[in-house]
Nucleic acid binder design. Structure first.
Lengths: 254, 254
DNA sequence: TCAATGCGTATGTCCGGACAATCGAACCAG
DNA sequence: CTGGTTCGATTGTCCGGACATACGCATTGA
């Protein structure tokens, strides 16, 4: 009896374009991911061994391994020595990434809108100065925004940014998200430190978000760093818990 | 003028043990990580080119690249073509992983304690059945626990587990965390889907955690999967926000 | 003075091969 | 029937080399 091994070459039309500037391993990993996504590779099915796959595609084994490994890192595949590589069952689709609330809402089909409440230079307070790594009292940008979805207020966003990084245009801030502006300004985001908590709304917070005073609020503080280690943003956000929660998937680091 | 490039071979005593069963690339990456951790490799410093490093250590370039790549994936290093590999400035230390509250508290120096309130088999409700992928009404384990730190209640944990996976001993549940028990039973955790939110405490919730009714609570729901895609745990937790928040770092996927 | 060009250097991609470690199943012995 | 052993299959690790590509800097030219 032969095992129910999928033959990727015939069942899905795999094949690489050597004239393309896109790396071969990336072409392959994208095709495999697409095949998984559309169900051509069913969960639990084996992927056929690497050497044979490499031979069929006219690639070397390291290239095929690199493609497979990238999908393993994404959590879509699992490798087992002596067994093979198989598609993970289900549900791992969007591992946690450094996300922008604006992009999240847009991807969810909500139509995000932003009102800029404050956009000025202020002397850095103790907390913002410590987070951004600048001297207390030195100038930093302060941006306060209200984020809406379907006309309902979702979150109040208060952010601090160091000067000289990008010019914060109020119109642009209302048209898109902060992260998109930073990327467009050539800032390469690298990592962030986040803290998610909850507390009761103060009178001012409650009024901004249209909640009663003392209502529970979901809070998030975040400091974002670029790849040189510079802090490029510090934000303290409050969310209406009935309208927003932090949903994500995460993988076990191995 | 020579550039201020660190010479890893002399300044840090790098060297691999070929008789060890530990993979060479792993030995190297661990040594590099340790060097970064203790400050021997200062943030921003270059790491010297791969080929030379490989030659000095008596390794091949792919092996050295594999070691470096693993640290890049961890966010400790950044590579730039034509420039070199440099140590990231600070602060990226513990990227988000699938964590156990028990382990988190223990690592933070708090002394966690657990009281098991409920540990029985119950017919699965709609929510638990959907999360675990079992038929509604079929038997599942139900575990309710109170988690303390320094004698103060921190969280109320309600978990559902499929039967036949492991035997849930109340004494063991009070001595350690659920994840540790599952790992000990041979379950290989793979991924989880989480949702973090907030809401006002009901009378029962408030009483359990020693909070006033209506107090804001931090909530987390999580479904955990093993590497075959089976759901192995579903939990609904509530935390006292004054005592606990979700802190983590995350990297930009590239 | 300033912009365009060229060059060195480092990482990015890819190849082909070799051996080791591990898993699962078939096989054999008690 | 049961338990241990052997063996094939598959991934894990490692090597040595080759060429492509992008960045930074110095040089050159307008």
């Amino acid at each position: 009896m032969s095992k129910p091994v999928v033959d990727p070459t015939v069942s899905l039309d795999l094949g690489v374009d050597r004239s393309s500037p896109v790396p071969l391993y990336f072409q392959l990993s994208q095709q495999l991911e697409a095949a998984i996504e559309r169900g051509a590779l069913t969960p639990g099915s084996l992927l056929g061994n690497e050497i044979e796959l490499a031979g069929r595609l006219g690639l070397s084994r390291p290239t095929v391994r690199q493609a497979i490994q990238s999908l393993v890192d994404k959590g879509l595949l699992v490798r087992r020595r002596g067994v093979g590589t198989q598609v993970v069952h289900s549900k791992v689709r969007r591992p946690l990434e450094l996300s922008s609330l604006y992009d999240d809402l847009e991807a969810a089909g909500q139509r995000p809108a932003t009102t800029v409440l404050v956009n000025t230079l202020v002397p850095a307070g103790a907390e913002a100065a410590a987070a951004l790594g600048v001297a207390e009292g030195s100038d930093v940008h302060r941006v306060e925004r209200l984020r809406f979805a379907h006309g309902e207020p979702i979150a109040y966003l208060c952010n601090f940014l160091p000067t000289g990084l990008l010019d914060l245009d109020t119109a642009q801030l209302e048209a898109t998200g902060l992260y998109r502006l930073m990327r467009a300004a050539g800032v390469t985001l690298h990592s962030a430190r986040q803290s998610i908590g909850a507390r009761a709304a103060t009178a001012a917070e409650a009024e901004r978000l249209g909640e009663p005073e003392g209502a529970p609020l979901l809070t998030m503080e975040r400091t974002t760093f670029d790849d040189t280690g510079r802090a490029v943003e510090f934000g303290a956000h409050t969310y209406r818990p009935a309208r927003y929660s932090f949903d994500f998937q995460l993988l076990v680091r191995s």
